[in-house]
Design a protein around this nucleic acid. Structure first.
Length: 289
DNA sequence: AAGTTCACCTGATGGC
DNA sequence: TGCCATCAGGTGAACT
């Protein structure tokens, strides 16, 4: 399920349900997720107060009393259920019981996600965060920072945007969508892009993320928000998962081939080659960079 | 060294 | 009904 908008939706749900609650206990039913859950996890979080929540890229940070931070990642199939009525499902891995006797359950069939616990002071050194790029919805993210990150890169802009070291939180869906709105061919080498293309790209990234957050994320497969409601941004996808369908930007135009699907770095890319233009390397891009 | 492929794991889907 | 192949929102190690 989870790219930045889905993670943000999960955090907002957890925040309203768990903020200022005390963790009575945390039952770890399986330690062997993508990373091992620390053996002393339960002992260390028991009795702690949930202070607040933050997001870094696709990672959920849960601040506890005692200067501890739970780091949670949803992988491909991770879910969080609040006020859960049952937590004995096959893939229910961690259950938090709070002082209002409610259960918050972390479920992840594929176990690509994980739950970890660190001292808050060690966060900057945490391996996942050390080389992570700027938050795309922050003022730190500009066409200039993207230009710096893309300089001399030959990998396709689609692949470069998925690299969390260039910009944090983007995944396959929203990269396809953003490149569509920016009118950029996903096969363009990242280093070829000029300010002319990078400005609308930054705008498009912010637009798709903000709209998806407002819609409660995209519900794919059986993903639901922590409160049980469905996100509905999947209905707003322009290109993702729409191979063979008409391009929404050029309906009825004879020279529009419709949405095409290709593979890039082993992942599906959806785009319209009529609306999205390939950018040749220009001397201008080198001069500006 | 940058760029690509693969492995990690389970479930859903579709063809035969 | 079953069996097999393919695909899926992510990440990082192991290749070239």
């Amino acid at each position: 399920m989870p790219e930045l908008p889905e993670v943000e939706t999960v955090i907002r749900g957890m925040q309203s349900a768990l903020q200022n609650r005390i963790i009575q206990t945390a039952i770890v039913k399986r330690h062997d997720l993508r990373r091992q859950i620390p053996a002393d996890f339960t002992r260390r979080v028991k009795g702690k107060t949930v202070k607040n929540f933050q997001r870094r890229g696709k990672y959920i940070l849960i601040r506890l009393s005692g200067d501890l931070t739970i780091i949670m990642h949803l992988g491909m199939s991770g879910r969080v259920t609040l006020d859960s009525q049952s937590h004995d499902g096959k893939h229910d891995h961690v259950v938090f019981i709070t002082d209002d006797d409610k259960a918050c359950v972390f479920t992840d069939p594929r176990r690509f996600g994980f739950v970890d616990l660190i001292h808050t002071a060690d966060e900057k050194q945490y391996s996942s965060f050390r080389a992570m790029g700027p938050e795309p919805l922050s003022s730190q993210f500009t066409w200039r920072t993207l230009a710096d990150a893309f300089r001399n890169k030959n990998s396709p802009v689609k692949t470069a945007l998925l690299d969390q070291g260039n910009v944090a939180g983007l995944g396959n869906i929203y990269v396809c969508e953003a490149l569509f709105y920016a009118g950029i061919d996903p096969r363009t080498p990242a280093g070829n892009l000029t300010a002319q293309q990078l400005r609308p790209l930054v705008t498009a990234i912010r637009k798709v993320l903000n709209e998806a957050i407002a819609a409660g994320g995209s519900s794919l497969k059986d993903y639901v928000r922590p409160d049980g409601g469905l996100g509905y941004f999947q209905h707003a996808w322009a290109v993702y998962g729409k191979a063979g369908q008409p391009c929404p930007a050029c309906p009825g135009e004879e020279d529009c081939p419709g949405i095409q699907q290709i593979q890039q770095s082993g992942r599906s890319t959806f785009f319209c080659s009529e609306k999205q233009h390939f950018c040749e390397k220009s001397s201008i891009s080198r001069d500006e960079a």
